[in-house]
Amino acid sequence: MNHSVLLIEDDAELSAMLRDYLQEDGFTVGVAGDGERGVAAALSGEWEIAALDVMLPGIDGIEVLRRIRATSELPVLMLTARGDDIDRIVGLELGADDYVSKPCTPRELAARLRAILRRSGERDSAPPVVSAGQLTLYPQTRRALWADTPVLLTAAEFNLLELLVRHAGRPVSKDFLSQQALGRPHAPYDRSIDVHLSNVRRKLGPLPDGRSRIQNVLRQGYQYIPE
Score class of each variant (00 low, 15 high):
Ser4His: 12
Gly58Thr: 15
Asp148Gln: 11
Ile193Cys: 10
Pro106Leu: 04
Arg202Trp: 03
Glu73Gly: 03
Pro188Lys: 09
Asp175Ser: 07
Arg82Tyr: 14
Leu56Tyr: 09
Leu207Ala: 08
Asp11Asn: 15
Asp98Arg: 09
Ala147Phe: 01
Arg19Pro: 13
Asp60Asn: 15
Leu161Phe: 00
Gly35Asp: 05
Val90Pro: 12
Leu43Gln: 13
Glu73Trp: 04
Leu74Tyr: 09
Leu163Gly: 03
Asp53Phe: 02
Ser15Val: 08
Phe158Trp: 01
Arg184Ser: 06
Gly121Asn: 10
Gly45His: 07
Leu207His: 04
Gly205Ile: 00
Leu113Ala: 15
Glu227Asn: 01
Ser131Met: 01
Leu6Phe: 12
Asp11Gln: 14
Leu113Lys: 09
Gly61Asp: 11
Leu160His: 07
Val29Thr: 06
Gln220Lys: 15
Phe176Pro: 01
Ile68Leu: 10
Arg170Asp: 09
Leu92Ala: 03
Leu109Lys: 13
Asp190Val: 13
Gly83Arg: 10
Asp97Val: 12
Pro226Phe: 00
Ala115Ser: 14
Glu122Met: 09
Pro106Ala: 06
Pro103Gln: 11
Leu56Val: 12
Leu14Tyr: 02
Ala144Cys: 14
Ile214Met: 01
Thr71Asp: 05
Leu43Glu: 05
Ala40Val: 12
Arg67His: 14
Arg69Asp: 11
Val90Lys: 11
Val217Met: 04
Arg114Thr: 12
Ala12Val: 11
Gly30Ser: 14
Leu74Thr: 02
Ala110Ile: 06
Ala12Cys: 09
Asp85Phe: 10
Asp60Val: 06
Gln23Asn: 13
Glu46Ser: 10
Thr71Ser: 15
Ile59Met: 13
Leu163Asp: 04
Glu46Asn: 08
Val200Cys: 13
Val54Thr: 09
Leu77Cys: 06
Ala156Ser: 15
His3Tyr: 13
Ala187Met: 14
Val90Ile: 08
Arg201Phe: 10
Ser101Tyr: 03
